[in-house]
Design a protein around this nucleic acid. Structure first.
Lengths: 204, 204
DNA sequence: ACGCATCTTTGCGTGCCACGCATTTTTCGC
DNA sequence: GCGAAAAATGCGTGGCACGCAAAGATGCGT
C-alpha cells in the first residue's frame, strides 16, 4: 500500500537524510548535532533515532537508496539480455542524475564537491557508506541469482558478482571524486564494469 | 627501528584487539564495555582510546592487519609472475591460519563460530570491518600499480583490481560463514579469484 | 460520520562513549 | 645516569543511542 502513512514516513526519512547531508557538507561532520538535523527536518530529536540508528546512517541513507535501485533496475532488464550487458545498464540507470541536480546552482558546484570530499573523509561515515553498499549487494545478489539460475543460499556466484559490481562502482566513484578534472561518472562506471567483465587484464 | 617501544605498542594493540574480540564473541557486543576490554588487556580505559577510536575499530583491527598482509605478500611475489597468479598466491598466504589456531581447543570450535556469526551481525561492526578492508585496499592498489606499471594517483586500474580482490575475498569469507558444512576457506578464496580473473562468466 | 485499534511522535531519563587537556610514568639516545 | 620524547593515566565534558511510557495522528470497519 502507499497510503498517507507510508508516504509521510518516506518523506520524513528523506528530509532527515537530506538535512543531514546538507548540513554536514556545509559545516563538517561533528559541527552538526543530531538536534540540528532534527530541527531542520521539523521533527523532535527523539524521532531522528526512530528513523536512523546513527548520524552516519542518516547521511549514508541516500547512498543506500541509490544502491538499492541497481537491483530493481536489473530485474527490469529483458530476460534474454546477457548478464553483463544488463548489469551495466542497471548500474548506469541507478547512477543517472535525478531531477534534484538542477536544484543546486552550478556556481556552487565546486564548493559542494569540496564539502563532499571532506565529508567522505570522515572515518565514521566511510564505514556506514560501505555498509550501505553491502546491504544493497544482498539484493543485487538476489537479482543476479534470479537471472542466472543460481541459488543465493548455496551458491557463491551471485554474491561474488554483486560484490564485484559494488566494488567496481565504488572504485569508479572514488576515482571520480579523486580526479582534478574528472570525466563523467557514467563513463567511469562503464569502464570499470567493462574491465571487470573482461577479467581485469593488466594493461599493455 | 623495532625498539622496545614499538614492540610494546604493537603488543598492547594486539592485546586490546584480541580482548575485544574474545569478550565480544563470548558475551555479545553491547554486553562488553570499553572498560572491560581495557581491564582484560591491563591498561587504563583512557589508554584504550589512544589505540582505537572506537570499540568497533578495536574488533576490526585483526581483520585490518590480515588484509594489510595481502599487499605485503603481493610485493614479495616474483616480479615476472603473471598478475593474477601472484594475487591469488598473496591472498592465500595472507589468509593462511596462523599459529594461534592450536591455542583454542577444537571442541569449542562450533561455539566460537557461532559467537563469530553473532558478532559479525552487529551493524556497528559491519561498517568497521568493511572500512578495514577498504584501508587495506589502498595499500593493495599501490602494490598492484607497482607490478603493472600503472599510477595510483591517475589510473583507475589498480584501485579497481584492489577493490575487486577485496570484494572477492569478502564474498568468499561470508560464504564460508554462511555455509552449514563449509569447504575450507582457501578453496573458496581460490574459486572466487579464479572466477574474477575469468570475467565472472555466468554458469552454464 | 464515528470510534476503536494501530502506528508514530515525543519527552524524559540513563548509561556509555569518544576525546581534549594536564599530569605522571616510561623509554630512548647519548 | 640524564634530559628529551613519547606513552599511559585521570578527570571532565558534550554528545549519542535507546528503553519506556504518554500523547497524538492515521486508517478502517461499520
Amino acid at each position: 500500500m502507499s497510503g498517507l502513512r507510508e508516504r509521510k514516513k518516506a518523506a520524513t526519512r528523506a528530509a532527515l537524510s537530506w538535512a543531514a547531508i546538507r548540513l554536514t557538507v556545509a559545516r563538517g561532520y561533528d559541527a552538526v548535532l543530531v538536534e540540528d538535523i532534527a530541527r531542520a527536518a521539523g521533527v523532535s530529536p527523539r524521532t531522528f533515532n526512530n528513523y536512523f540508528a546513527s548520524k552516519a546512517e542518516a547521511i549514508a541513507a541516500r547512498h543506500l537508496d541509490r544502491s538499492r535501485r541497481v537491483a530493481d533496475a536489473l530485474r527490469a532488464r529483458p530476460a534474454g539480455e546477457p548478464l553483463w550487458t544488463a548489469v551495466e545498464a542497471a548500474v548506469l540507470f541507478a547512477w543517472a542524475p535525478g531531477p534534484e541536480v538542477e536544484q543546486s546552482p552550478p556556481d556552487a558546484h565546486d564548493e559542494w564537491v569540496a564539502g563532499l570530499r571532506v565529508m567522505l573523509a570522515e572515518p565514521a561515515l566511510q564505514g556506514e557508506m560501505l555498509r550501505a553498499g553491502a546491504l544493497a549487494e544482498a539484493e543485487l545478489a538476489e537479482a543476479v541469482a534470479a537471472r542466472t539460475g543460481t541459488d543465493p543460499a548455496h551458491d557463491l556466484y551471485p554474491h561474488l558478482v554483486a560484490a564485484a559490481v559494488g566494488a567496481a562502482a565504488g572504485a569508479a566513484t572514488r576515482h571520480f571524486l579523486r580526479a582534478d578534472r574528472p570525466e563523467p561518472v557514467h563513463r567511469m562506471l562503464s569502464d570499470a564494469l567493462t574491465q571487470l567483465a573482461a577479467g581485469l587484464p593488466p594493461p599493455r
